[in-house]
Nucleic acid binder design. Structure first.
Lengths: 354, 354
DNA sequence: ATTAGCACTCTAATTGATAGAGTGCTAATT
DNA sequence: AATTAGCACTCTATCAATTAGAGTGCTAAT
């Protein structure tokens, strides 16, 4: 299966893929010669096509039909593309501009990233919230609402915020609430579940214990839950085609999607990855290609951006789009959510260095 | 077009609709007589069908085909259903149970409501966040992160929380931040945009002014933005059918969906509403039915829950599901987000009274 | 190594024939 | 006056048969 191809075979393979992506129809020898004004006859091309078929890069739907690329063929093709394709400069400018307009609000950036990807790829897009490797408590706030009703806001490092109502056993003044949270905030800042759990003994008050328990529960859930905040866009772009339509099921089901992403994003790969035809592992992605990339910092805080579309998609363009958006998100995370010294023109930097 | 129907015509209309919803095929006179063991001959039924066709309640795709319900027919049918259908008691129990399990977290309730509706209706569901008629400031919190970097958390009445990073012109200690927010929280509690805007003069500090501006901006955006937080589920349920597939475009596009909901939820109607075939106003909903209901309190804080599926759907079931979930959400909002005296067994009440 | 030529294969589109479901009308029946 | 049986008619969906077209693989010549 893994044979070396001659230059001409490579060239023809590329042409077949290009032609198929554009036209959508199986491509035959004659059409190839005519369209691209090749210096050889269709018979020659025919024999090369046969060779490429034997090598597994092309397949025929039936004996007398033209060839279409196999998954292997796509992969071979994409390999050469993955390094050096770039979005046109005016599109990059436009995208940058849009992020410049956004406020420094994580949710809004994610939403925007999803919208940009869906739009430039004409496919569906996914953006997951950045997940820390281990969740650390940052802040708790109790806001008295009425009677025994209190709004609790939990903030974790990495930008995750959780709000929840809780009912106390008896009314407590806002000042008391504040003194409790002040104490807990000082005591538990930057601590993980285990660290907090170990310091239970330092609490006296019943209220303190209650809030303590809820903080623990929040951390516990945050640690367990894989990916909950997922932004999607462009689903409408992929539902017309029977092949890609099935992918919606994957995209919609949070846990399933999370497992796909997690199993795919290999720890040692930082750049863009391309999953063609589900790699035989996900039936629902059979006729789809998923282009994805991690963003953020692997050992600390990271999420994923991805594009899903038909196997027959503009690879160069979409690969660059994913990389570009991932870089923007990475810079955002680096500048605002990771503990590093900060430069003077942070906002500019976040965008202009991309 | 609006003629009174005889009892028998009504009965036959109901049977045609029932049969069509179950079988999906146009229904003819003979089949009707056989399947439902009517006491009359097919010829009689035929003449009644002709009458119903004339009246506009049924249509024929072609001369020699059976009849299918027109939108008018569905509407007539649904009118009698809307009042008195109820979900089976065991399903109600199960749904209640699921909400019991959830924590008092608005986002989680909304997610759950969407999931429940999608599941029981076998269609797509939408749940919008509760929107106050006018947004009021509740709380601001500034959390120092590193250097001049600060996390700002804005809380509005009605459960809406917004987080945002901001960069100060120079580093400020957490204590200073806290004193600023304390002042602003006291000063602006429960105020609208206009009210806050009028009290600008009471600020001295530069930092205070900065935060003040951001609070104003947050309120301004909250007032303007129609509906931003939308939970969707079950999209995969409606993409197989060409007719309903188009609806995905409506469901996916936030602003568009918001306008559909807003134009539909009439102020004076509090119960469930049924939109069949887009009412001629929304081309994308041509072959769909949307069952929707407001939840919460109209003059104060309300959102919407909805189910979207094919025109040929189990109306009774879905209408009850929407009403049931809307009631659950209403109780939740009433108990936790509206300013009312609270009873002793709030949580129980929220669910058991439904 | 390349190419022209040709027989062969397979699909997609077209045509024609047929069975089946359903209708509307009329005349007979209750 | 309402109901029914009977019948001619219409329209669709389906199947088989045919055909045009695109493409292949092979062979013999260049």
């Amino acid at each position: 299966m893994i044979e070396t191809l001659t230059d001409r075979q490579r060239q023809i393979l590329a042409l077949v893929i290009k032609e198929f992506i554009e036209s959508g129809a199986p491509v035959g020898s004659k059409r190839l010669v005519k369209r691209y004004e090749l210096e050889v006859s269709s018979a020659t091309v025919r024999s090369e096509l046969a060779a490429l078929s034997d090598a597994g890069y092309l397949v025929q739907l039936h004996t007398s039909a033209g060839r279409i690329p196999s998954e292997l063929g796509y992969r071979y093709f994409v390999q050469r593309l993955i390094g050096d394709s770039e979005l046109p400069v005016d599109e990059r400018q436009m995208i940058k501009h849009q992020f410049h307009q956004a406020r420094l609000d994580l949710a809004q950036w994610m939403r925007l990233a999803a919208a940009v990807l869906a739009h430039t790829s004409q496919g569906a897009s996914i953006v997951t919230a950045p997940q820390p490797t281990s969740n650390r408590f940052k802040h708790v706030q109790l806001i008295s609402t009425q009677g025994r009703l209190v709004l609790m806001i939990l903030v974790f490092y990495g930008g995750h915020v959780k709000q929840q109502m809780l009912t106390l056993t008896e009314p407590v003044s806002q000042d008391q609430l504040t003194s409790v949270t002040d104490k807990l905030n000082k005591l538990f800042d930057n601590s993980t579940y285990d660290e907090i759990n170990a310091r239970q003994s330092q609490l006296e008050d019943a209220l303190e214990r209650d809030v303590f328990r809820l903080i623990l529960e929040g951390l516990w859930r945050a640690d367990r839950r894989r990916i909950n905040d997922i932004y999607r866009d462009g689903l409408a772009n992929i539902i017309e085609d029977e092949g890609t339509r099935q992918a919606v099921r994957v995209l919609e089901e949070g846990p399933f999607l999370a497992s796909v992403l997690n199993e795919t994003l290999e720890p040692d790969i930082n750049g863009v990855q391309v999953v063609i035809g589900g790699e035989g592992r996900w039936e629902e992605l059979k006729d789809c290609t998923m282009i994805l990339s991690r963003y953020g910092e692997f050992e600390q805080l990271y999420g994923a951006v991805a594009v899903v579309g038909p196997t027959r998609m503009p690879y160069g363009r979409n690969i660059s789009a994913v990389r570009f958006v991932a870089d923007i998100m990475s810079d955002f995370i680096n500048d605002y959510y990771l503990e590093e010294p900060i430069s003077d023109e942070m906002m500019d930097h976040a965008l202009d260095d991309v």
